[in-house]
């Protein structure tokens, strides 16, 4: 029973991933689409594309903040030009927690793709808790930067780099809260599950962008 259910689920997911798995049907000079699904996951959903656009926009902005960091470092005689490199503790804790958060995120995404409301709710709660924890840790990171934002170019760029990622982090955590709350609003349509799956996709972006930004903030002034 268990193995067959897993196989069925995998087959279902494979079918969903391929286009036109329920084909349109020709009826005379018309193409009948009444049997087509009214939503799809991953790149079959428009939300995925909107999300991809958002991630590109923010990715470009983050990428250029990193470029600005190295630009300012390049023209500086000494780096950091004020203050000292940040303490490694809170940033590394953040790295660990954020990487760990990818697990409940993955489980929430799978639950959404399986359209299982109870599992989605559970894992969204776990994600929300991780989000709160990360926000707290992020607060401590700011206090451990060892430089003020108005202390030279180094302070400015480090604060803004951390600040931009924090903005993303906090807005996505708030999004997660909202989605958790929305699971209580009946009736739950299929596209809610798509939204939840997409928000999980965006969380991966928040996690992945932290890795290079962490490296730049915490080691850019040490190497």
């Amino acid at each position: 029973m268990g193995a067959r259910a897993v196989n069925d689920r995998q087959a279902a997911r494979r079918r969903e991933a391929t286009p036109a798995s329920i084909p349109a049907v020709r009826k005379g000079d018309a193409l009948d689409v009444s049997e087509l699904p009214s939503y799809g996951f991953a790149h079959r959903s428009l939300m995925w594309w909107g999300n991809a656009g958002m991630m590109t926009i923010e990715g470009v902005a983050f990428g250029f903040m990193v470029v600005i960091y190295f630009y300012l470092r390049d023209i500086a005689r000494v780096w950091p030009d004020a203050g000292s490199p940040p303490d490694l503790l809170w940033g590394t804790v953040n790295l660990g927690v954020i990487l760990a958060s990818a697990v409940p995120n993955y489980l929430a995404q799978k639950a959404a793709q399986d359209r299982s409301l109870p599992r989605v709710r559970t894992w969204l709660y776990v994600c929300s808790l991780f989000g709160i924890a990360l926000s707290v840790v992020r607060w401590f990171e700011f206090t451990a930067l060892n430089v003020r934002w108005d202390d030279g170019a180094y302070g400015s760029v480090v604060w803004v780099l951390l600040g931009f990622h924090s903005f993303n982090l906090v807005t996505d955590v708030l999004d997660t809260f909202v989605l958790t709350a929305v699971t209580y609003s009946k009736p739950v349509e299929g596209k809610r599950f798509v939204d939840i799956a997409e928000n999980c996709g965006y969380w991966y972006f928040v996690v992945l962008t932290w890795i290079p930004i962490y490296a730049v903030i915490y080691f850019g002034a040490r190497v």
């Binding site: 286009p19 036109a20 084909p23 349109a24 020709r26 009826k27 000079d29 018309a30 193409l31 009948d32 689409v33 009444s34 049997e35 087509l36 699904p37 009214s38 939503y39 799809g40 790149h43 079959r44 959903s45 428009l46 596209k191």
Partner: peptide, 29 residues
């Protein structure tokens, strides 16, 4: 084949198609 039929006339529906070949994919509200 000249047109599509079967989308809802009672909710605002359209049709999504695949990116490269524009094969019918899902209905979209």
């Amino acid at each position: 084949v000249t047109h599509v039929q079967g989308l809802s006339a009672q909710i605002r529906e359209g049709l999504t198609t695949t990116v490269i070949d524009a094969l019918p994919d899902t209905r979209y509200a």
